[in-house]
C-alpha cells in the first residue's frame, strides 16, 4: 500500500517537475520579442516547418474533403437534401477537421522533426558548445522554432480548409451532379465568419502553441543518447496528438456548446 502511494507521489512530482521545466523553457525562449536580426533564422524555420509540410497538408486535405462530400451526399440524397452538402462539408472542415487534422499532421511531420533535430544537437553537445561560446541556445535554436511554429500552423490550417472545401466541391458538383449554385450559396447562407472561420482559427492558434511547445521541449529535454532521441520523438507525437484531441473537445464545448 505504502509502495503504491510512494510510486504515485513520485510520478506526480516528476510530472510537475517536467511541467515546470517546460514552462521555464517557454518563458526563457520567448522572453522579449524576437529581434530583427533573428528574422532570417525564423524564416529558415518557416521554410522547413511550413513550406515543406504543404505537400502532405494539401494531399490529405483534398482526400478528406472529397470523402466527407461523398459521405454527406450518400446520406442526404435519401432525404432530397443534397443541396446542403456544401454547408455540411464547409462546417465540418472549418470547425473541426481543418484545425485538428492539420495539427495532427503538423505534429507528425514538423513536430517530430523539431524534436529530433534539437535532441541530436543536445546529444552531440552542440548546445553546450554554443553556451561555451556565449551564444544562448534558447534564443538561437529554440525561439525561432517556436515563433515559426506559431506562425505556420494557422496558415497551414487555412490552406487545408480551402483545399478540403474545393475537393468537396469537385466531388459533389463535378462528379455527383449537385448544382454548383446550391452548393456554394448553401455554404454562404450557413457559414458565419466569426463563429465558424474565426473559432476555427482560434483553435489553430492554440494547437500551434501546444504542439510547438511540446516538440521543442521534448527535444531540449532529451536524454542525450540515440535511444533517448527516439523516445523523445515518439513522446512528441503521442503527447501532441492526445493534447490536440482533448483540447479540441474542450474548445468545441466552449465555442459551440450552446447548440446554436
Amino acid at each position: 500500500m505504502f509502495r503504491f502511494l510512494r510510486l504515485l507521489g513520485q510520478h506526480v512530482l516528476e510530472s510537475l517537475q517536467t511541467l515546470g521545466r517546460a514552462s521555464v523553457l517557454w518563458v526563457m525562449a520567448l522572453w522579449g520579442l524576437p529581434k530583427l536580426a533573428d528574422v532570417p533564422l525564423a524564416i529558415k524555420q518557416v521554410y522547413s516547418i511550413g513550406v515543406l509540410s504543404l505537400v502532405i497538408i494539401i494531399l490529405s486535405a483534398f482526400s478528406i474533403g472529397a470523402v466527407i462530400s461523398l459521405q454527406f451526399y450518400t446520406q442526404l440524397v435519401r432525404f432530397g437534401a443534397e443541396s446542403t452538402v456544401g454547408l455540411g462539408v464547409a462546417l465540418t472542415v472549418l470547425r473541426e477537421l481543418g484545425p485538428v487534422v492539420t495539427a495532427l499532421l503538423f505534429a507528425g511531420r514538423a513536430g517530430s522533426a523539431i524534436t529530433a533535430e534539437i535532441g541530436l544537437m543536445k546529444t552531440t553537445e552542440q548546445l553546450s558548445s554554443m553556451e561555451m561560446m556565449g551564444v544562448d541556445p534558447l534564443h538561437r535554436i529554440v525561439a525561432p522554432r517556436l515563433w515559426a511554429g506559431f506562425f505556420c500552423l494557422p496558415i497551414l490550417t487555412v490552406i487545408f480548409s480551402v483545399v478540403a472545401i474545393l475537393g468537396g466541391a469537385l466531388v459533389a458538383v463535378d462528379w455527383l451532379g449537385v448544382s454548383a449554385g446550391s452548393f456554394w450559396s448553401g455554404m454562404r447562407d450557413g457559414v458565419l465568419i466569426g463563429r465558424d472561420i474565426g473559432n476555427g482559427m482560434i483553435k489553430a492558434v492554440i494547437f500551434a502553441v501546444v504542439v510547438t511547445w511540446i516538440a521543442v521541449f521534448q527535444g531540449y529535454d532529451t536524454v542525450p543518447t540515440a535511444e533517448g532521441i527516439g523516445e523523445a520523438t515518439t513522446r512528441t507525437v503521442v503527447y501532441s496528438s492526445i493534447a490536440i484531441l482533448a483540447l479540441d473537445f474542450v474548445l468545441t464545448l466552449v465555442m459551440f456548446g450552446d447548440f446554436n
Partner: peptide
C-alpha cells in the same frame, strides 16, 4: 516562404468571400 504566406492570405480571402460570403 513569401509564396507560402501569400497562399495563406489568398486562402483566407477565399474563405471570407467565397465560403462565408
Amino acid at each position: 516562404v513569401g509564396s507560402f504566406v501569400l497562399a495563406g492570405i489568398i486562402a483566407m480571402v477565399f474563405l471570407a468571400v467565397r465560403v462565408s460570403g
